[in-house]
């Protein structure tokens, strides 16, 4: 009995046994994008000393909770508070410097003047409306143009997370090791910086992707039998500028060859230019590849089915995918329609 107890307590003391083990939690929730040691991947390198010097714990806490709506970084709403604290401690463990605090005291300046200064000094990287650099910093399997993308400053998550004094500090000091330089060193006065902070505070917030209420599946009935419908789909695929990749039963590879259920037939197709563009914007979309239409025969009725890209869009939290999702939905509907004419 005693031995069991000691064993159990021993288990509980092992670092991985605690819910709030910061290293493990960080690795699970953050490392995919920010790198295991905060070295970056997509998103900014969190271990960078100049980053650590220009933020405080509250900025991290709020960023974890609010994310960056529409800019890939998810909002971790459901994480227990102790897990958030453990992750903050993990991120802070990369810095040996004393932790700063940037209290929530308003910086007052002339926002109108700030706007002019912003247009002249910042818009080139952060966008005319503060919408951030294009590509969202997502590169992953892609060739990388810039080591770090300019973040969105009109982002609700950023504006909620950063106090005025924190933003001011970033502009005064810059972030050494990134393209973001100190604007004091670039010749702006402290008053100019106050004006820019006031302007940023009033920026019109970027649009987050709203949850979609559209149906998850696009379905049309076919007046033809299954075989004719499949042939129609293949024809419609190529007349809509897609390439037929393969066709197979839904249960291909799951049941022995030759035993597939013939009433559920998948037609896979692709347009490599479109695909390349989509993966360039966000390589995470790949799990829905290749595009497909499934032809299903049920009680004498033949139906064509495809997932609805617009319904799947919000899960990626990437506003730059919106046009591509609209385009893919439009093209899928065109194929469905043409196949059942």
């Amino acid at each position: 009995m005693h031995r069991i107890l000691i064993f159990l307590l021993g288990l509980a003391a092992a670092p991985w046994a605690f819910g709030a083990d910061g290293a493990a939690l960080y690795s699970r929730h953050c490392a995919a994008c920010h790198g295991d040691t905060g070295n970056g991947g997509i998103g900014v390198p969190l271990a960078l000393p100049s980053f650590q010097a220009s933020i405080d714990d509250d900025y991290l806490r709020r960023t974890i909770r609010h994310g960056r709506p529409g800019r890939v970084m998810p909002a971790f709403l459901a994480l227990p508070t102790e897990d958030v604290e453990a992750i903050v401690a993990r991120v802070r463990s990369w810095s040996k410097a004393p932790r700063m605090r940037y209290p929530d005291i308003p910086v007052t300046g002339d926002a109108k003047r700030g706007r002019k200064l912003y247009d002249a000094h910042c818009a080139g990287c952060h966008g005319a409306k503060g919408e951030g650099g294009h590509g969202t910093g997502i590169t992953l399997s892609r060739p990388r143009a810039l080591p770090v993308m300019a973040p969105a400053l009109n982002n609700e998550g950023f504006l909620v997370s950063a106090t005025d004094t924190l933003i001011k500090e970033i502009l005064m000091r810059g972030r050494a090791g990134t393209p973001m330089e100190s604007f004091l060193k670039q010749g702006l006065a402290e008053r100019d910086i106050d004006d820019i902070v006031s302007y940023l505070r009033g920026l019109q917030k970027g649009t987050a992707l709203p949850a979609s209420t559209e149906a998850p599946v696009l379905v049309v009935e076919s007046p033809y039998d299954l075989k004719t419908t499949v042939e129609n789909v293949k024809r419609a695929v190529s007349s809509n500028n897609f390439l037929l990749i393969r066709e197979q039963g839904l249960d291909f590879g799951l049941v022995p060859e030759g035993r597939e259920d013939r009433s559920r037939h998948i037609v896979y197709f692709c347009n490599f230019q479109f695909l390349n563009e989509a993966l360039g914007v966000d390589p995470r979309v790949g799990m829905f590849l290749p595009f497909r239409i499934t032809v299903v025969e049920e009680r004498g009725k033949v139906r064509l089915m495809a997932y609805n890209p617009r319904r799947l869009l919000p899960m990626f939290n990437n506003q730059e995918l919106k046009d591509l999702a609209d385009e893919l939905t439009r093209r899928t509907l065109a194929i469905l329609e043409e196949s059942t004419l």
């Binding site: 046994a17 819910g19 459901a78 994480l79 897990d83």
Partner: peptide
Amino acid sequence: APAAPAAPAAAQDLMIAR
């Protein structure tokens, strides 16, 4: 208990791992 793997309370729409 907190080490239980399912962690559904922390569910994100995408699962992504490095």
